Amino acid sequence: MSDTWGLAGGDAIVPGLTAVKPVGGGTMYEAWLAFDERLYAPVVAKVVRPGQVSDSARADLQREVDMLGRLSHPGIARLFAYDDEGDRPYLVLENIDGPSLSSLISKHGYVPLHQLLPLGLELASALHYLRAMDVCHLDIKPSNVIMGAPAKLIDFSIAMEAKAAGELTDPLGSDEYMAPEQCLPGERGTVGHASDMWGFGATMFRAAAGYRAFEREPRWLQLTEEPYVLPDFVPTALGDLIHACLSSDAADRPLPEEAARALEPMLERLPQARLSGFKISL
């Protein structure tokens, strides 16, 4: 039997919060589009799975609440409410009108430049802010990017302050999007803000190419292999930026603001949209 609360559309997650449809989740959580009667608006409810409810899960939920409570940025999904003490612990998060980057790539393939470059700028903006707040997300990947206007980062379940990240001794993250130092903390370097820039690079690679920089199997090919070659249609300057972010040495990766400054002229050089078939004279 799967580890689920068995919810269906129309069921109450808790009083005042009604499930609409599932929108993903993971090992620890179910995620639902829900209707919040207090806000009178659609939200996302992140619910701890029944088999995962424990003191440690409640502590993890509270840690995520504390983290999100510190953060306020246009590129980060907002926290509206939570309950870490009830029988069904949950978070209520902002619902962003758009698909995840991973589902967009799965459906349509690579992301065109007119979408990709603004996406890169918006993610770099969020990462610049997180760096200023001394927070490491540690799980930057396409499924944690929602393609709203602007694109938004979600899932701060393993985020932590840089000091705590630097003290990690065990692997943490999602395999293909983990910087080398996240795979082997200490042996391959110290986990920190630059680790998120590696995740940014791996995410931008997949969006630009339509395929991953490294295969899933065997595990952690980023420790021994170079990333795949980007397609010819990816501009050289963008490819250079992506590969700089994927440097095995954290010190060689650009800062978020440096990535943004590299992306801005690429965006400016894109052809401007214009009306066709007639001309407006003033």
Rank of each mutant, 00 (worst) to 15 (best):
residue 114 H to M: 02
residue 199 G to P: 01
residue 94 E to S: 04
residue 198 W to S: 03
residue 123 L to F: 13
residue 80 F to D: 00
residue 105 I to K: 00
residue 190 T to R: 00
residue 137 H to P: 01
residue 77 A to Q: 04
residue 162 A to T: 14
residue 160 M to C: 09
residue 177 Y to W: 15
residue 195 S to P: 00
residue 193 H to W: 03
residue 123 L to M: 15
residue 175 D to S: 09
residue 123 L to A: 07
residue 110 Y to A: 09
residue 135 V to R: 03
residue 153 L to N: 05
residue 154 I to T: 10
residue 96 I to F: 11
residue 108 H to A: 13
residue 128 H to D: 11
residue 150 P to T: 04
residue 99 P to D: 03
residue 158 I to Q: 02
residue 191 V to F: 01
residue 81 A to Q: 08
residue 184 L to H: 03
residue 194 A to D: 10
residue 199 G to E: 03
residue 182 Q to V: 12
residue 98 G to H: 13
residue 187 E to S: 07
residue 157 S to M: 06
residue 160 M to T: 09
residue 196 D to Y: 12
residue 144 N to T: 11
residue 84 D to P: 02
residue 149 A to T: 15
residue 86 G to S: 04
residue 196 D to H: 12
residue 194 A to H: 10
residue 97 D to E: 15
residue 174 S to Y: 02
residue 187 E to A: 09
residue 112 P to E: 12
residue 154 I to D: 02
residue 170 D to M: 14
residue 196 D to C: 12
residue 142 P to F: 15
residue 195 S to V: 07
residue 136 C to G: 06
residue 148 G to T: 12
residue 171 P to D: 05
residue 158 I to M: 06
residue 135 V to C: 07
residue 192 G to F: 00
residue 134 D to K: 12
residue 195 S to R: 00
residue 109 G to N: 04
residue 176 E to Q: 13
residue 109 G to K: 06
residue 81 A to T: 04
residue 154 I to H: 04
residue 89 P to E: 09
residue 149 A to Y: 14
residue 121 L to V: 11
residue 171 P to Y: 14
residue 159 A to E: 12
residue 138 L to D: 01
residue 116 L to V: 08
residue 175 D to K: 10
residue 143 S to N: 14
residue 179 A to C: 10
residue 111 V to N: 05
residue 158 I to R: 02
residue 92 V to T: 14
residue 138 L to S: 02
residue 197 M to R: 02
residue 176 E to L: 13
residue 143 S to V: 12
